[in-house]
């Protein structure tokens, strides 16, 4: 039976995260730290002149929740414009993850999103 939190796709994304790589020539990047556990995720973005994300990657270490979330997030962002993805809300991120997230694990689920948003807002768009 599928676990309520650690669903098979979450575990699969933990074992084999999507887009876990260095992005060559990235114009945007930021690192975010989860202060409660020390996990770090950095996100790198390469966008074309129209602001469309042509390449995206993440690096760092994290729990199954944060790794699955950043995998799904980066996959979602690919091919979309930076202006569109910078406004993804916390709720939308949790919905994208598709599992019920407890208060204690909210930072895990949102770590990648914070890194993505900082990568974009730190750069003039």
């Amino acid at each position: 039976m599928d676990d309520i939190l650690y669903k098979e796709y979450i575990l699969e994304l933990h074992r084999n995260p999507l887009h876990k790589k260095v992005v060559p020539n990235a114009q945007m990047e930021a690192k975010e730290v989860n202060t409660s556990c020390g996990d770090e995720i950095s996100v790198q973005i390469y966008s074309n002149t129209q602001g469309v994300i042509e390449d995206i990657g993440h690096q760092g270490q994290g729990c199954a929740i944060s790794q699955a979330a950043v995998s799904l997030l980066t996959d979602f962002c690919l091919g979309k414009s930076v202006r569109e993805v910078v406004n993804i809300t916390d709720e939308e991120m949790v919905t994208m993850l598709g599992i019920h997230i407890s208060y204690a694990r909210k930072n895990c689920a949102l770590l990648g999103l914070k890194a993505l948003q900082h990568a974009i807002t730190n750069t003039t768009i």
Partner: peptide, 9 residues
């Protein structure tokens, strides 16, 4: 296995 996942389970 991440420590948070251990503690959660």
């Amino acid at each position: 296995i991440h420590p948070h996942d251990i503690a959660e389970v």
